[in-house]
Design a protein around this nucleic acid. Structure first.
Lengths: 222, 222
DNA sequence: CCGAAATGTAATCGATGATTACATAATGGA
DNA sequence: TCCATTATGTAATCATCGATTACATTTCGG
């Protein structure tokens, strides 16, 4: 039988507590948090996110993560939560900065911020948008965060409609069209379609603005 | 030459015969083809496409596929080629059936056929659109097929422009916008976004038409 | 202070992509 | 026709991965 490995002299270091009243980690300090960060970084590096690699970066055994996440999908869901939170913060900051009264101008700022974030954080955007890496319904926070962004879009267009700015009376249709346009543009970039469509790398951001403007001009009355 | 059918003593191989009706020869007839079909079917079933499972379905050893594909990505690229071919055939058939002179009506038919195919073949659509499963540049046929569809879209809009049907003089921008809208809609469905946006399953196809109509009305002059 | 709960480790499992050495079939030149 | 070469499939093996289990250790509450 292999001799039991003597355990490392663990220095008990009281780490900073999270404010959230969740499961409080004991041994590692805050392994759950560290694992999420490691996974986020892996995603940001474009590497494949594996539980083992996250554990490796946290300097912990391969089985340890499963004390905090029932399976890989749960880890990915937590990663998505964090990415979604950052996404929402960024979008709301951009809207706050825009500070326009015109709802269509706000919609424009929203769309541009959306595409820009997706361009700068491709791996995170991928994780939060496809639902390929985890069961979407597994995270209430993710659902809530997303619903708020949906509601935000709805409000902008509803306001535009109430001011008589829109051509179509079908608000839902207009909303879905705008969303499809923005999401589609972001994904075309992420999925590497633009080279096939003759759109150069440095041209993409400008093209995003142009395309959103064209859409708004199309739905605006007059 | 008449293929010599050899009797097979097959002493050293008590291997279990698979359910193939004829006694399976040592050499598979067209393993490459069969592997692609098996992988296509796996994708269609929504299962994860693994080389081993494809080999299993072809009743062949796990290493055999690597005689035909240098690695998994190459298999996936071949699968994407086949899926893309079917996709193109379907789109062109839909356009032929539309047989409208109006370029914008043709664009509409194109978009609807696009979304419909993506809805009915989610796994295939995923494979050909993301480039996550293989290196896109690895297949000349894939590039060519795709370029033809791009050119097809361009022609439709260029024709519309030449007939003075478009509001914007920026053809490229209009093209990208239309593509982003259609691709985005198809992906929203594939990525499971519609429930969050209050679009019911049975409503999606109608919504696709509505959204495309709205877009066309937005870019059309008058 | 002590026992229970929390959390980490070691060992192990089955599946996968991939590589290597070897076995067998198919092909074509002498 | 013979047989050597090439194409193609098999067997064995490896490293990695997600996941589970038994066990060790740390922390916390009564």
């Amino acid at each position: 039988m292999p001799a039991r490995q003597t355990s490392k002299p663990r220095i008990s270091k009281p780490r900073a507590r999270r404010q959230t009243p969740e499961t409080r980690p004991y041994h590692h300090g805050d392994l759950r948090r560290v694992l999420i960060d490691a996974a986020l970084q892996l995603a940001a590096e474009g590497a494949e996110v594996s539980v083992r690699e996250a554990a490796r970066r946290a300097a912990v055994s391969p089985g340890a993560p499963f004390r905090h996440f029932p399976n890989r999908d749960a880890l990915m869901a937590a990663v998505a939560e964090e990415a979604q939170r950052r996404f929402r913060v960024e979008i709301e900051a951009a809207l706050a900065e825009a500070s326009s009264i015109d709802p269509l101008a706000r919609f424009r700022a929203f769309g541009i911020a959306y595409v820009r974030w997706a361009m700068h954080n491709p791996a995170h955007f991928e994780i939060i948008s496809t639902g390929r890496y985890f069961a979407y319904g597994s995270s209430a926070e993710l659902i809530r965060d997303n619903a708020e962004l949906v509601a935000l879009s709805e409000r902008m267009l509803a306001e535009a409609a109430s001011q008589g700015l829109l051509r179509s009376p079908d608000l839902k249709r207009t909303l879905i069209a705008g969303r499809a346009l923005i999401y589609g543009f972001a994904r075309m970039n992420l999925d590497g379609h633009f080279p096939r469509w003759g759109v150069e790398e440095g041209e993409i951001e400008r093209m995003a603005e142009g395309v959103i403007d064209l859409f708004i001009a199309g739905i605006a009355k007059g």
